[in-house]
């Protein structure tokens, strides 16, 4: 067979492989382009539109009336509006504060748990892991709701504390920042434990034995070996908690007070109550801009874990 024939064969193979790959790759690719990426372009567009009393309630940013080159009738008013009204800035800062504190709390509770599960004897390990995953499979909404009955003024916790004689007036535990923290830490704790566990479980036991053999005390071994090696797990877990917590709506709505300002709740209200879609879009874009950095960090570490796995 001639060299030309070989080239033809190669090209045919490549074409065939290419088409087979395309069949696999294209459906998810197009789906995500259409239903994930395109919506963000629209949000971006809308965030620079003017509100109008219509359906949909905004004006087009491009006026196609006079031919091929549309006039830009967009406005950055919605963004400047976010800075003129205290509400938004305060809501942003408050969301970040709440998400940050919750993430740290999740890490402080989740790390020892993940560590304990990873070090537990084999038969226990799977059972404990299942106990972490199980709440994650049951209704998030109803689990948050369960805290109302626990935390309210005549709720279980207050009744218990009064019954034990520790306090004689019910503590205000519901509808304030405290209950929001409890709700977020409670809801997102499994998201912190799982990546940490995955990281700690595959850690080579002989590294710890080597450290011990070289004379390191257990806590020194932990600080010098275990902790640095678990950084990818810590980052992944923290991002899985922090990013969605910033935009959390259900928890502040159900457990927070009327003055618990979080940006997810503000967005919801702008959209559903004020029906100001452009401002809601501007709120979303502003939130997204702030979250881009953590999202990229998350993807970076996610990619790293994938590489390590393969």
């Amino acid at each position: 067979m001639s060299a030309g024939g070989a080239g033809g064969l190669g090209a045919r193979l490549r074409a065939r492989l290419f088409s087979q790959r395309t069949v696999v790759l294209l459906p998810p690719y197009i789906w995500l382009l259409l239903f994930f990426l395109a919506p963000f372009v629209i949000v971006l567009k809308l965030s620079i539109s003017e509100a109008a009393i219509a359906m949909p309630p905004y004006l087009p940013i491009l006026d196609w009336a006079d031919g091929l080159i549309p006039d830009f009738t967009g406005t950055f008013y919605n963004f400047s509006f976010l800075f003129t009204d205290d509400l938004y800035v305060v809501a942003y800062l408050n969301s970040i504060k709440i998400a940050l504190v919750s993430t740290i709390a999740c890490l402080l509770i989740g790390y020892p748990m993940a560590y304990g599960i990873a070090k537990a004897p084999g038969t226990w390990r799977n059972a404990l892991l299942m106990l972490v995953i199980l709440p994650f499979w049951t209704s998030f909404l109803i689990r948050v709701y369960a805290w109302i009955g626990i935390l309210k003024n005549n709720g279980i916790l207050n009744n218990l504390l009064i019954g034990l004689g520790i306090i004689d007036q019910p503590l205000p535990m519901l509808h304030n920042d405290f209950s929001v923290y409890v709700g977020i830490v409670y809801s997102y704790l499994p998201f912190m434990i799982l990546p940490l566990y995955a990281n700690l479980a595959k850690m080579d036991e002989s590294l710890l034995e080597a450290a011990a053999d070289l004379g390191a005390k257990p806590w020194k071994t932990f600080l010098a070996v275990t902790l640095p090696l678990s950084v990818p797990g810590i980052v992944a877990g923290s991002m899985l908690v922090f990013i969605p917590a910033v935009g959390e709506f259900v928890i502040p709505e159900l457990l927070g007070g009327p003055d618990t300002l979080m940006i997810g709740r503000v967005l919801w209200n702008e959209f559903f109550h004020n029906r100001d879609w452009p401002v809601a879009s501007a709120v979303a874009i502003a939130m997204l801009l702030f979250l881009v950095v953590p999202i990229v960090i998350f993807q970076h570490y996610q990619g790293k874990t994938d590489e390590a796995a393969s």
Binding site: M1, A3, G5, A6, G7, L9, G10, L13, R14
Partner: peptide, 18 residues
């Protein structure tokens, strides 16, 4: 697949054959 060169099996060029 080789980057360069040919592989013949029983006189038949194998490059590009899956």
């Amino acid at each position: 697949e080789p980057t360069e060169g040919r592989i013949l099996l029983d006189g038949q060029d194998m490059v590009g054959v899956p």
